[in-house]
Design a protein around this nucleic acid. Structure first.
Ligand SMILES: [Mn+2]
Ligand SMILES: [Mn+2]
Ligand SMILES: [Zn+2]
Ligand SMILES: [Zn+2]
Lengths: 120, 120
DNA sequence: AGTAACTTTGCAATACAATTGCAGGGCATT
DNA sequence: AATGCCCTGCAATTGTATTGCAAAGTTACT
């Protein structure tokens, strides 16, 4: 099943939620899917995106991610027209200056607006 | 009740979830609280922060926010040690270049790490 | 092949945040 | 007093995330 899920994820152009996968790949148990994704996340195969839609979405990681660290510091774009979330792997998240004594370990930048497909 | 909630929010140094408010301000009905916050959000009094902790958190808006637009384009910091979320009103979110035909309307930057109180 | 150890899967149940429906209460205006 | 509008509280529902447990599958060893 992990192979099936990985295969499915590699074909996606958008980030997908557990429910998306459940509906597209049935028959398949939601809990097993949940655990599969969890395993993938822990091993640096997929990254989680919280776009504020209520459900986490997931996308395949860059090749250089591993279990110790994720390197996909790219922007995610949430289209409020089609409600889809896209990875923008070429758009890096800039560094920001923090107040004294704050230590940054990760950063996540969500841009919301209208995607290329919906502006047409 | 709106006055009570607004008063409470103004005293906070951290963003708070509905559950936080429910526990700190009882007795008070969760649904009414939910609708109060929703009203505040729609009228530009509070902004919502999705820090990935599972529950939305809220904080008072800057004075120049209104029902048409939020202007708090500041970074939010989630401390993975104390699990608290802080507004960093002086740390602005930089603009980013998007691919062709993407239109940005909002942006949210969450930095995760260790907060000033926890690095001591 | 047979067995033990370990991993993966599926079902049932639970936890918890978010949301809706509905009815009662307060308050102002006529 | 009657009407209308808004605010509140309770019950119930939705939807996602998560856990417990036992069965099924896999691998390693003899
Ligand atoms: Mn991504
Ligand atoms: Mn803020
Ligand atoms: Zn779109
Ligand atoms: Zn902290």
């Amino acid at each position: 099943m992990r192979l099936l899920v990985l295969d499915f994820l590699e074909k996606q152009s958008k980030a997908v939620s557990l429910t998306d996968m459940e509906l597209s790949m049935e028959p398949l148990d939601r809990v097993t899917l949940f655990r599969t994704i969890k395993t993938f996340e822990e091993h640096g195969l997929v990254h989680r995106i919280e776009d504020g839609s209520g459900a986490s979405k997931f996308a395949i990681c860059a090749a250089d991610c591993d279990s110790t660290q994720h390197h996909d510091l790219h922007v995610h774009f949430y289209c409020s027209h089609c409600n889809e979330t896209y990875c923008l792997p070429k758009t890096h998240i800039p560094e920001v200056e923090l107040p004294a004594n704050y230590v940054a370990l990760e950063r996540e930048l969500i841009v919301k607006g209208i995607c290329a497909a919906c502006t047409k």
